[in-house]
Design a protein around this nucleic acid. Structure first.
Lengths: 199, 199
DNA sequence: CCTACCGATCGGTAGG
DNA sequence: CCTACCGATCGGTAGG
């Protein structure tokens, strides 16, 4: 199903995989053309430029995270439940769209102008959602008051983003199980100050 | 002090900064030559190839992490103290050698053959050290038994590695303070299971 | 979507 | 470390 309906879709799919694996600068239009099965010049009947391709891939990828954030925060729930849903949802997104998301994380630097500014702003927006859940949890007393909200948000986001470096669709553990374990570990850090359970 | 003693050192320094900022494929020998202040062909009196440059930068960077790990584990201390020293030391390394370490994280994919295999092995070795501290802490009862050692190790490593994306030498908080806060949050996750402190 | 091609730029070298 | 240059490859285009 959905074996790519349009030529443009096929180009985007191949470009996503190649940009994710070899990087934007390490991928040539000739690589993409070969993967799609056409000659290099033929790509330009469907796209305007290499950078337009990158811009679309990055934006599509980052919008998945924003959609997750908006969906999770729209539901009434405790801060802990919000955080649990964000963490497991984030891991799912990475597991299902690994290449696309690697491009979001590392290739946006090759964008310029408005496209780049938009990406930076959307990433900031997503991090702000994570931070708001932490602040909310501290305020409600679900998370310990000694938590460092800003660094905790960056620690959680880093742990989640880094899954794109090691998660494997054919790994021994399912991505759902990995998501649950990530949530356990990371939420544990918000509920326990250092030394709170021992000397 | 140490304004780069040798021509080769100057080349390595410029290449590290450029590879870290624009990536390996996004950096040309002409960029490096311009940064050093010579003409492109002159570089080859001091180096053999672009890839040799990358290989040396990656290996130097990764060896810093291994040295940290060996130093920390050599001291007799609790698992928690070992983990604390690893986390704060890791953040320091990233803060002081940001470009070098970004190259370690993302540009090793452009290596091939033995150099690449060596990097993969050394990164595995460093992760194994983190994991051994977690296992040790669970065994000694310092960390909760429900901890998921493998995923916890990857979560901690991910949070630490991702600091290279946002840490700023001129930021409002010192890297020492960031290291302490990272340690609080991440070690908290090892000492507290989810739900251990609330309903 | 192909044929045929463009000016620019790439990593690297010979000879001084 | 410079002069002068190499064959290969780059992103992209004109015309069909």
């Amino acid at each position: 199903m959905n074996v790519v309906a349009t030529p443009r879709g096929a180009i985007l799919e191949s470009a996503t995989r190649l940009f994710g694996t070899n990087g934007y600068a390490g991928t040539t239009m000739r690589h993409i053309a070969t993967a799609v099965g056409v000659l290099p010049g033929s790509l330009y009947a469907h796209i305007q430029s290499k950078e337009e391709l990158l811009s679309e891939i990055v934006e599509t990828g980052i919008d998945r995270f924003l959609a997750l954030g908006h969906e999770v925060l729209a539901s009434p729930a405790s801060a802990e439940d919000h955080m649990y849903s964000l963490i497991t949802g984030h891991v799912q997104l990475v597991a299902v769209n690994t290449d696309s998301i690697r491009v979001v994380y590392h290739q946006w630097r090759h964008l310029s102008g408005e496209a780049r500014a938009r990406v930076v702003e959307k990433r900031r927006e997503y991090e702000a959602m994570l931070l708001s859940v932490i602040d909310d949890g501290i305020e409600k007393g679900e998370f310990v008051g000694e938590a460092h909200p800003n660094v905790s948000a960056k620690a959680i986001l880093g742990a989640l983003n880094w899954t794109s470096e090691w998660i494997r669709p054919d790994g021994p553990e399912t991505s759902e199980e990995i998501g649950r374990q990530m949530a356990d570990t990371l939420i544990g850090g918000l509920k326990s100050g250092r030394g709170s359970l021992s000397s």
